[in-house]
């Protein structure tokens, strides 16, 4: 049996005049966490719906666990777990009732597969009588994950599970995904948060319906292709404007407490930049070589032509 769990080839899909996806191809291998990284409206949800057999592609083909999404959708529906982007549980049912309902819908019982959700469900157990609608964002996410897992799916489709969730709950959520992966489940997950990319084995950077790049996060970062400098100073906003007026600057973006700068000419020395900034009245500027992150790569790839 092949190791490919999800296979997609040249998938395109239009909504009216909008090309939601154009010619998207990729493979997910067994036991892999595959991340779709991109902003809202990039086409992530459309791709999820096509792979979970909820939508038909206009062209291209795709299979999940060897079954065709168009013709063998019933087989796929038996085998996958899906967590849509919106909060998709019954708000007026309790935590326990929700889990019990989804277990039955998928022809199983909580008892039979409790071991799969145990680690996550113990955190919910104190609130099991509470209505799902009254849970906090992080808790809702955990319950939705339990419901998607309860029938022991081979592949999990998680569409933006961490959107709008605070950083602490997000971190916990990714730790849970790590455990599931070790349990042998393949996961396709999407997120608009670039910092979550490094938690995936392979990522696809997606924008405006096309993949900018597919590779491991390490390779994507290593392929950045430009030396990156971190610049900081006292008045960061003035510094940003002046950096952009420096001749030979290729890109300059604020990144937390520093600005990330690349030069169009690699031979430009940092001393030259420092002098330029001093002339502009920035006295205490601090320059050092930095390492590009996924977000640098994303912006670099999405703005090849007009980087500023």
């Amino acid at each position: 049996m092949s190791n490919t769990v999800i296979h997609a080839e040249n998938i395109s899909r239009k909504y009216g005049a909008v090309q939601a996806l154009s010619e998207v191809s990729f493979d997910v291998t067994k036991g892999e966490v595959f991340g779709l990284i991109g902003p809202d409206g990039a086409g992530k949800t459309t791709l999820f719906r096509i792979l979970t057999t909820l939508l038909l592609a206009d062209s291209g083909s795709a299979s999940v666990e060897g079954f065709d999404v168009r013709n063998q959708y019933k087989e796929i529906r038996r085998r996958v777990g899906y967590m849509p982007g919106r909060f998709s549980l019954y708000q007026d049912l309790s935590v326990e009732e929700n889990l019990d309902f989804f277990a039955t819908v998928f022809n199983t019982t909580i008892k039979e597969n409790y071991h799969l959700v145990k680690d996550i469900y113990v955190q919910l157990e104190p609130f099991k009588k509470r209505k799902a609608g009254a849970l906090s964002g992080g808790m809702k996410q955990k319950l939705a994950l339990c419901c998607a897992l309860i029938h022991k799916p081979g592949v999990l489709f998680l569409d933006e599970p961490t959107t709008g969730v605070d950083p602490v709950s997000r971190k916990e959520f990714w730790e849970m995904l790590g455990n599931l992966k070790r349990g042998g489940i393949s996961i396709l997950v999407s997120t608009p948060y670039m910092d979550e990319a490094e938690k995936c084995d392979t990522i696809a950077l997606i924008q405006k319906g096309s993949f900018l790049k597919i590779d491991s996060p390490e390779n994507i970062v290593n392929d950045f292709g430009h030396s990156l400098w971190e610049v900081s100073g006292k008045n960061m906003f003035a510094l940003l404007k002046d950096l952009r007026s420096f001749p030979g600057i290729r890109s300059c973006f604020p990144f937390g407490d520093t600005h990330h700068v690349t030069f169009s000419d690699e031979s430009i020395s940092s001393d030259k930049l420092k002098k330029f900034l001093e002339l502009k009245g920035h006295e205490d500027t601090f320059l050092r070589r930095g390492k590009a992150g996924i977000e640098d790569c994303f912006m670099n790839l999405s703005h090849e032509d007009d980087i500023l």
Partner: peptide, 23 residues
């Protein structure tokens, strides 16, 4: 939460607007 789900470069352009307003 003005920048939830916005792509990275637009997010930065957004913050530049914030800086301008602060100015």
């Amino acid at each position: 939460e003005p920048t939830g789900g916005v792509d990275p470069s637009t997010r930065r352009q957004f913050w530049e607007l914030i800086y301008k307003a602060a100015d």
